[in-house]
Design a protein around this nucleic acid. Structure first.
Lengths: 161, 161
DNA sequence: GGTGAAACACGGAAATT
DNA sequence: AATTTCCGTGTTTCACC
């Protein structure tokens, strides 16, 4: 990762693209207060230095039948680095597991899992997750409703460079 | 939300745009096996019916100095609908709170929070979250590392229409 | 869903400060 | 060194089949 400082224009670009990833370069430039070519160069630079890691359409999970989101709190029997990595690799391979975070506290991993139904989740839980190597215990927190779901991070453009 | 069935081409479009939200319409059409104009019509229809809720650049949180991600498990004193809504409104107004899910289980809400540092998080915790109306207890799970972070849902194009 | 055409945006190169 | 203007190329998006 580059440690070059971002100026106000860069942050403005990041904020706008985080808000609307399909904004055209001319509109982006207009908002940033510069002309299109340097704006595009900045975007390319932000992509190449990894500040922008990609662009994604936000697909409505429920519209596709994914009605159930569950956060699974997983405790492992062994926390040796090799065993942690092995579990992470297994979690990454399950398509219904969308996020896998190693956390400090009473659990070892927090997983965000999407399913078509509670039954489907239970099947995944009993035939995949709880029986996986080194998994000690799993607590499931079913998401009833999502009040906020903002991608990315807050970007304040009004700070000094 | 429309309950019209998506055909294989629609699912292909959704999958590709979820993967790369800035893919050009001609490339999208080429992959879907149709020409550009009908492809664009499908994309617009998917946007208007809400299957596609938006497009977002995936900004590297760490590169912007957000080194700390915390999952806060919040228990409320009162679970009356009015009080739940009040807490959700408050959570939605905090910019560092990126996600707020009401969950079933031992807690009431699961929040995903980003901060520049552990200190900044503790300040938020002690001056905002724990002192907020109706908040009973908060357990913080600091994310050590993220092994997987896939946006959206798995989209299988090879199912019958 | 496909075809053709106009409007527009992208992405160089040269000119400007 | 960076931004602005200009222009060729490709894409988007319209009307129509």
């Amino acid at each position: 990762m580059q440690r070059v400082k971002l100026d106000k224009i860069d942050r403005r670009i990041l904020r706008d693209l985080q808000e609307d990833g399909r904004m055209t370069n001319v509109e982006l430039a207009r908002r940033a207060g510069i002309s299109a070519p340097p704006c595009l160069r900045r975007v390319r630079a932000l992509e190449e230095t990894g500040f922008i890691q990609g662009y994604h359409a936000d697909v409505d999970a429920q519209a596709l039948g994914y009605n159930v989101t569950v956060f699974a709190m997983v405790g492992l029997a062994s926390q040796a680095e090799h065993d942690l990595r092995a579990f992470e690799a297994r979690a990454a391979a399950w398509p219904e597991v969308r996020e896998c975070h190693m956390v400090a506290g009473e659990m070892d991993f927090l997983l965000k899992i999407v399913s078509h139904s509670w039954d489907e989740y239970q099947k995944f839980l009993t035939t995949e997750l709880t029986v996986a190597e080194n998994v000690n215990h799993v607590k499931s927190a079913l998401s009833i409703r999502t009040a906020k779901n903002m991608p990315g991070v807050p970007i304040d453009i009004e700070v000094e460079d």
